[in-house]
Design a protein around this nucleic acid. Structure first.
Lengths: 188, 188
DNA sequence: AGGTGCATGTAACAGGTTACATGATTAA
DNA sequence: TTAATCATGTAACCTGTTACATGCACCT
């Protein structure tokens, strides 16, 4: 009988963190910021493999503060309210514990383009168009990744490596599409 | 002002389909089966880019039947109940409409391994271990993909191409890991 | 007699998105 | 003055997973 642990069960004593909670702690390790800025940063940097919405970020920051992992204080910009958060010592420890944890990391992919390709025998005349559409999407993604990489010189190893991996796999995807497109177009 | 359409809004007259509903219609295009068999097939074939659980499949089959897109009837195996579904004409048309649709396909990725790499500057001594863990996971995935590919000769183009794309990108991922691991190990 | 696989289904939960509400600041 | 951007937050909704409940069939 397998003694299956719950995926997010914290290892004795450590606070339970949601996946988004972990991501937010990570973002705060890059410097103290507001919920709004976290969203901007996510959209610029990790969105291709980890997205987040305001509806998730703001409540999560509150929960993290309740757990003592982050500390927030008001830093209004003129009359415009602004709440800035930073990691506490406990938060930094929780972040390090996560990074060192050997628990199977969450991996979830839902790719409708691939699903369309999988079922493309039903409508073979659409197959080439589907692959072209997938390639175009990947080209857009590559463009954005490359645009961010333009700041590579100011990047530390973590983000730089992640970005490079993204670029490499995206390029492979595009090359595969090009090769298959050529093969399919030839047959016509 | 952008006139943003709801993602799943059906193009006038066509039945609204959930993402899982589309996947189920696709699976039924491969032949009539039961909910149980759909789950087995998904786990064997599309799970790396499109998973499904019983809790989703059974209610969805019922909804699809209510919409007239599939038709189910009892086909017990001895005393063991079994409900087998097949596409109706309307279902086949909905499937074709989906495959031909130019709506931006759903793409969702949540990869905690990448997130760990992104924040690895907080705990640089774990970086190499994180990358190794990612490579091991990808090697397991590749193994499963290759195992399915052993039946490639009996596969039609759709599944075969999808599988090939999966193998190609996974191999690239692994090669990237190997290269970076070598670079990091050298520095130590 | 007992374990594994076949087979169906539901209820509770978790996690996340979207749309909405609100309002200040800044640049055109 | 008006649009875009900064900034926070919530409620309703959607989608999906997990755990559970049930029971037959087959093999050892």
């Amino acid at each position: 009988m397998e003694n299956a642990l719950e995926p997010n069960l914290a290892p004795a004593g450590e606070p339970a963190l949601t996946p988004t909670g972990r991501a937010i702690l990570g973002m705060l390790s890059l410097g103290k910021t507001s919920g709004y800025d976290i969203k901007q940063l996510v959209d610029k940097s990790t969105r291709h493999f980890w997205a987040a919405s305001y509806g998730q970020i703001y409540p999560e920051l509150k929960r993290l503060e309740d757990q003592g992992l982050v500390r927030g204080h008001e830093e209004p910009t003129g009359g415009r309210p602004r709440r800035v958060y930073e990691l506490t010592e406990a938060g930094r420890a929780a972040l390090a514990a996560w990074l060192a944890s050997e628990r199977e990391p969450l991996y979830e992919l839902r790719d409708e383009g691939m699903l369309k390709l999988f079922f493309s025998d039903v409508l073979p005349e659409q197959r080439l168009a589907n692959i072209r559409a997938m390639r175009r999407r990947m080209e857009r993604k590559l463009e954005q990744l490359v645009a961010v990489r333009a700041h590579a010189h100011e990047m530390s190893p973590g983000p730089a490596l992640t970005l490079d991996l993204g670029v490499t796999t995206t390029e492979t995807f595009i090359q595969w599409c090009e090769a298959v497109e050529a093969r399919l177009a030839e047959k016509e």
